[in-house]
């Protein structure tokens, strides 16, 4: 009782009260009518407000897909921009329902920080970029190089590990802000630039002579970027995970936002189950959603391939190749368990 009074007293004193983040996030989200999504404060292609101020990007589309699955309307999302430091607190304190902020899934985040990850929406890895003029073909030839890197990131630690394991010498040139790292590399203060591969593509766009730089083939770390939710809410984790798998599955079926209405008439039982047109299907309702959930996801944001190409792939200035993020049937790692 005392605690209730205290909460009420504090509640009266504060603005912008979010509903209590109990164990049943899905019910809370349905009750308040929108998904509160933690995104990056600005990362090319992943989360970025456009000219009208609407958030756009790969991670943002994931939040929109979750909203589409729950409400049938991809716009029922509110975004909380989070910095690298504030992201985990925001999720722990219940300020956000999902953290879709290019966050690497690691064991300590899964266990010690009390989060759950399951569906990896982007497989990233740390890479190197060098000027072509250095004539370097492999990262193993980089002994003695000056390496530009952002401080306080896993990138910096991976770099140290990689050079130590391979008995290579290097001089780290460390900056706090990404722009500073870019400027230093551009000005030739270091020979090598290292960050996640997705970031290297964005950096190349900001260079004055992009064609004179190459991205080396070595990937020195595994960075599976996965949306995170709080531990101890399996139902919500199921929803968030299966929305991701629905995106991948839709691509595998060849269902796009353009043809999803036609596909509803398909006679393929797999597709009928997926889109909820099969009689007596309970797939959607068992998730706590409607049976149209997957249809709404594809209708709202498209399939995984569409989301990828639109934000970071060939349809965007970044032009990142699918690579590891191709479907499993095309040599990539994107694999959805069967929807049945």
């Amino acid at each position: 009782m005392k605690k209730t009074l205290l909460s009420a007293a504090i509640g009266a004193a504060v603005l912008g009260i979010s509903s209590a983040a109990s164990a049943a996030t899905l019910d809370d989200v349905k009750a308040k009518g929108f998904v509160q999504c933690g995104v990056n404060t600005g990362l090319a292609g992943f989360a970025q407000p456009d000219a009208s101020g609407a958030w756009k990007g790969f991670d943002v589309d994931y939040c929109r897909a979750v909203a589409a699955a729950i409400f049938g309307d991809a716009d029922k999302v509110k975004y909380t921009p989070t910095t690298a430091q504030s992201r985990f607190t925001a999720l722990q304190s219940g300020e956000v329902d999902i953290l879709a902020r290019n966050t690497t899934w690691t064991i300590s985040r899964d266990t010690a920080l009390g989060f759950n990850f399951r569906y990896v929406n982007y497989y990233d890895g740390q890479g190197f970029m060098v000027p072509k003029s250095l004539n370097v073909k492999s990262a193993l030839e980089l002994s003695g190089a000056a390496v530009c890197v952002q401080s306080g990131t896993t990138t910096e630690l991976n770099l140290a590990d990689y050079f130590r394991t391979n008995n290579l010498q290097y001089n780290p040139v460390v900056f706090e802000k990404l722009e500073e790292v870019n400027a230093a590399y551009q000005a030739g203060r270091c020979d090598v630039y290292t960050t996640d591969q997705s970031g290297l593509y964005a950096t190349r766009l900001a260079l004055s002579n992009p064609d004179e730089h190459v991205i080396l083939p070595e990937i020195i770390s595994k960075e599976p970027l996965a949306p995170a939710v709080r531990q101890g809410d399996d139902k919500w984790l199921d929803v968030v995970t299966w929305v991701g798998y629905a995106l991948v599955q839709a691509e595998e079926f060849g269902i796009t936002s353009a043809n999803v209405d036609e596909m509803k008439n398909s006679t393929n039982p797999d597709i009928k189950r997926f889109l909820g047109t099969e009689a007596d299907t309970k797939i959607g309702t068992d998730l706590g959603l409607t049976n149209e959930w997957a249809y709404n996801v594809v209708k709202g944001v498209g399939n995984y391939g569409e989301v990828f190409e639109r934000n970071i792939g060939q349809g965007s200035p970044l032009k990142i190749a699918r690579g590891l993020n191709a479907l499993w049937s095309k040599g990539g790692l994107q694999f959805a368990p069967p929807v049945r």
């Binding site: 404060t41 766009l205 900001a206």
Partner: peptide, 28 residues
């Protein structure tokens, strides 16, 4: 206030540096 994820004048400008629509060496 950028530290708490708010965008004042300077930070909303910096936010746009990473925008793929405008990312060039001259934008920042």
């Amino acid at each position: 206030v950028s530290i708490i994820g708010m965008f004042d004048l300077l930070n909303i400008i910096r936010l746009n540096f990473a925008d793929t629509t405008w990312i060039t060496p001259m934008t920042p």
